[in-house]
């Protein structure tokens, strides 16, 4: 009888395995959301409210750069267009609004702080101890999520006014 029923398998039903959204970097998306949101919690001086709003990434993270490019294509900061720079060099003329120092470039924080002194730049890092070493914001992993530490003294030193609410959102405030 069983052999008689075998032919009932009429249609070769698809039974494959399906792929991950492997080209999608969730970590990069979260950081892009943070970077854009920080523009709401800090106030740059009037002199920096015209022209492009520049976010400079120091270090290599192609997924993050792609995510930031998408961000720049769809959002603005006030009336300012977003400009994403992926360059390891901060020249004398440039005055980026935000510099994001990726982990492998953290060693250059002292040099960057010196170059950006008095330029009203929000310095963001992603390595343990950086908030105490001069960064205003430092990304950390807490409970499998990306959160941030906030150093209000460093932000004030950079000449940035901040909304007090950011202190409530940070996992640590220095």
């Amino acid at each position: 009888m069983k052999s008689g029923i075998r032919y009932i398998l009429l249609i070769a039903i698809v039974f494959g395995c399906f792929g991950f959204q492997q080209n999608y970097d969730t970590n990069a998306k979260v950081k892009a959301v943070y970077l854009y949101n920080f523009t709401r919690y800090f106030e740059w001086p009037e002199s920096m409210k015209s022209g492009n709003f520049v976010i400079q990434v120091i270090g290599t993270n192609n997924n993050l750069n792609q995510e930031l490019s998408k961000l720049a294509a769809t959002k603005q900061v006030g009336n300012q267009k977003l400009e994403i720079k992926a360059s390891p060099i901060i020249d004398k003329e440039s005055k980026p609004h935000i510099v994001f120092l990726l982990p492998e470039s953290s060693g250059s924080l002292p040099e960057i702080l010196a170059k950006l002194k008095g330029k009203n730049t929000l310095i963001i890092t992603e390595k343990a101890g950086m908030a105490k070493a001069g960064a205003s914001i430092n990304f950390v992993v807490d409970d499998n999520k990306i959160k941030f530490e906030y150093n209000k003294t460093n932000a004030a030193k950079a000449g940035l006014k901040s909304n007090d609410e950011i202190k409530n959102l940070a996992v640590a405030v220095y």
């Binding site: 991950f20 959204q21 999608y24 969730t26 998306k29 979260v30 892009a32 959301v33 943070y34 854009y36 949101n37 961000l71 769809t74 959002k75 959102l169």
Partner: peptide
């Protein structure tokens, strides 16, 4: 991953 992908950039923190 979809939750992350569909999230808008200006979502509140």
């Amino acid at each position: 991953a979809t939750l992350m992908r569909q999230m808008d950039y200006d979502v509140d923190l």
